[in-house]
Write a protein that binds this DNA or RNA. Structure first.
Lengths: 92, 92
DNA sequence: GGAGTTTACGAATGTCGTAACTATC
DNA sequence: GATAGTTACGACATTCGTAAACTCC
């Protein structure tokens, strides 16, 4: 599991399409498709139901989405907190 | 920022040494040293005070450590939650 | 001089993009 | 036949490990 995979997953969840997500992320579709598949393989669960019109969250995917957003938010918090503290007392 | 960097950082924080952390992580020292440096560069703050006897958390590092642990815990939560749900209603 | 960290460099791994394939409507 | 996702494959980038160099007691 990588942060990129989590970001890709959230993008696909929000757009409902691998293609739209890839466009928003400024990368090509296959990269997104592969990472989603890798993530599903690692977790041992299908996160999306594939249909001919796009990607719909499965139950497991729905559960994961909340956690994924929390993780990304926490990463952001961490970055902000350490940068604020780092500037105050840190480097030359 | 990557999950590996966060794991390496926590390991160095807990052991107080790059070498001990590397041993615990089952990888070589330089890999840990580089990732810590990359993390510091990206965050724009020194996370450790280097001394001749090891690595001590700086103030910024202390702040980051709490967040780092929270992130890893949340990753674990996510994994557990989606696996529990995935097995129940998911794959063939 | 010894314990510990960092730099240098080649090897291995992973990720990406283009192009071709598959499937569903 | 059009739309959307996946597979194949070569190119690019990142990360790793071994070996050597550096630093502070």
């Amino acid at each position: 599991m990588s942060l990129a995979q989590i970001e890709y997953f959230v993008a696909v969840s929000e757009t409902g399409h691998v293609g739209r997500a890839a466009e928003a992320l400024r990368i090509a579709q296959p990269a997104v498709s592969r990472q989603i598949r890798n993530l599903e393989d690692e977790l041992g669960a299908r996160l999306f139901v594939r249909s001919a019109r796009g990607m719909q969250l499965s139950e497991a995917g729905d559960v994961f989405l909340e956690h994924a957003r929390a993780i990304l938010a926490q990463i952001d918090d961490a970055r902000r907190a350490v940068q604020a503290r780092g500037r105050r007392s840190g480097e030359p």
